[in-house]
Design a binder for these strands. Structure first.
Length: 154
DNA sequence: GCCAACGTTGGC
DNA sequence: GCCAACGTTGGC
């Protein structure tokens, strides 16, 4: 029996890959995460987990859509590709350093739930990695209660 | 193992 | 484009 469904937030720069891009692609391999904490979160993911799709470094940073984890974690192939921006010479196929998952499109939100708005709900949200001071983590856990509350703002 | 230097993230 | 905050690297 598999553990119950969990929830995550994954950041992306919409100029590079937006919720609309995911809608077109249907499923996207989430390559290029090169942060250990973010990787560790991805290693805990299971097919069917919920993902808040977050747009960063853009006009209105915030949650733009819902996605789902579409694969078990597996080694990120770009770490072995010398030509890739994500190539890691310290990684080997025998002992891959970076794991990733595939992410599939669920739906686009009717409106972006902005970071600015999220910050006004710190009481309801409780401790939240997204709004913790100085946090730059690109893959972070969301509790079931936070998931429910954030989507109730839509 | 310390820590300065450097690179990156991401909001503003 | 700026810069605070953070992670990583590498000399010692």
């Amino acid at each position: 029996m598999s553990p119950r469904k969990r929830y995550w937030l994954m950041k992306t720069e919409p100029d590079t890959f937006s919720i609309d891009d995911l809608a077109k692609a249907k499923t996207e391999p989430w390559t290029g995460v090169r942060n250990y904490q973010a990787r560790n979160h991805m290693k805990e993911m299971q097919v069917g987990d919920g993902v808040l799709f977050y747009h960063s470094s853009c006009e209105v940073p915030g949650i733009a859509g819902i996605a789902a984890v579409a694969s078990a974690p597996y080694p990120d192939p770009t770490q072995f590709e010398k030509k890739s921006d994500y190539y890691d010479p310290k990684s080997s196929r025998e002992q891959p350093r970076w794991e990733m998952v595939d992410v599939s499109f669920e739906r686009k939100l009717k409106r972006v739930i902005s970071l600015e708005e999220i910050k006004t709900h710190t009481d309801e949200l409780g401790p939240f990695a997204l709004t913790q001071r100085g946090s730059r983590l690109s893959v972070l856990p969301v509790s079931a209660a936070q998931w429910k509350f954030l989507l109730s703002l839509e």
